[in-house]
Design a protein around this nucleic acid. Structure first.
Lengths: 164, 164
DNA sequence: AGTGAAAGCGAGGCCGG
DNA sequence: CCGGCCTCGCTTTCACT
C-alpha cells in the first residue's frame, strides 16, 4: 500500500490524465498515454496499490446546492508541548465542518478551513470547540467572500521536471 | 449546464456516494442509493449536466512522488478599485503553482495556496509575481510544516439537512 | 516489459408498467 | 418516473512475443 517503487514517465502521464478525468475509460487512458489497454491497466493498479492514487472523487459544486460559507481560521494554542498538538489535532479531526488542518510556521499555529451553512453554523461549531477545552488560546476568522478559482489538478510535470 | 433544478433526497445520496468514490460503477451506485441502474444513470447524467458535478478526478498523493512544499500566502493590494481586483485575479490565475485563490474579509485581501517543489521554487514564483507589478502592496507567507488532515469529501446531508 | 485475443460484465437506449 | 431487457463496448485475464 505504501511502497516507494519507481515511477517512470509513462506513469506520470497516467497520473496526470487520471487527475484531470478520473472516470476516463482504460482504453481512452491507454490511448492518451500511448499504451495498449492491458499494460495500462496494470500500471494503474500498481499506482493505486502503491498509494500514489489515494482515491477517486466527484468534484461537487456544493455552492450550487444551497448556501455555503467557507472560513479560514488561524488558531494559536495555549501551550506547545507535543501532547498539546496531538490533543488538538485529535479533537478537530472528527469535526465534519473542518475540511483542512495545516500546521504552519509563523504568527500562529494552525490554519483551518471550514465549510458551513452560514455564519450561525460556523459560530456554533467554533463555540463547540472552545467549550471542549482543547488548548485553543485564541483564534481569528477570515470569512471567504469569493473564491476566484480553486484548481483541482496540478501539472505534475512541473513538480518532477526530470523524471526518467 | 447551470440550471437550478430540484434535487431530491435520492440525488443527494447519489452525490454523496460519487464524492466518496467517483469510479464506482452505475450498478453499484444504484444499489447503494436504492434504485435500479437505468433511472440512477439518468439522474447522474442530469446532475452532471446541471453542473452539480464539476468533474471527476483522481486524488494524487503528490508528496509521495517527491518533495513538495505547501504555502499559504496572505496578499494585500495597494489599491482597492474594482479594476485592481480584476487585474490581480487575472494575473495569478495562470500561475500553475497557485492552487487556490480566496478573497477574504479581514486583515488582508487574498489568501493564496501554493504548491511548489521547495522554498527556492516558491521564492521564484513570488518574485515573478512581484516583478509583474500586479498591484501587490505586501504579502506574508505561512509555510505548511504538516497537514494533519485534508478531507476530500463533505457530508452533504449536513449542509442541506431538510431537503425533501 | 507490451500485444492481441477471448470471456465476462457494465453502460446506455427502448419498451412496458 | 421507475424497472427489465438487450446490444454494444469496455474491462480484465491469459497465452504469446
Amino acid at each position: 500500500m505504501s511502497e516507494t517503487l519507481k515511477v517512470d514517465r509513462l506513469d506520470l502521464r497516467i497520473l496526470a490524465q487520471l487527475q484531470k478525468n478520473g472516470r476516463m475509460t482504460n482504453v481512452d487512458l491507454a490511448d492518451a498515454v500511448g499504451l495498449s489497454p492491458s499494460p495500462c491497466l496494470i500500471r494503474v493498479k500498481r499506482l493505486e496499490q502503491a498509494g500514489y492514487i489515494g482515491g477517486y472523487g466527484a468534484q461537487l459544486r456544493l455552492e450550487k446546492l444551497g448556501d455555503t460559507l467557507t472560513v479560514f481560521t488561524e488558531v494559536t494554542l495555549a501551550d506547545h508541548h507535543r501532547e498539546d498538538f496531538i490533543r488538538f489535532e485529535a479533537a478537530i479531526r472528527d469535526v465534519d465542518e473542518i475540511l483542512e488542518c495545516h500546521l504552519v510556521s509563523g504568527g500562529y499555529d494552525y490554519l483551518l478551513k471550514f465549510m458551513t451553512r452560514g455564519v450561525n453554523h460556523y459560530q456554533e461549531v467554533i463555540e463547540g470547540l472552545l467549550e471542549r477545552n482543547i488548548g485553543i488560546e485564541k483564534y481569528f476568522s477570515y470569512i471567504v467572500i469569493k473564491s476566484p478559482f480553486i484548481k483541482t489538478h496540478y501539472p505534475i510535470e512541473r513538480l518532477f521536471p526530470h523524471q526518467r
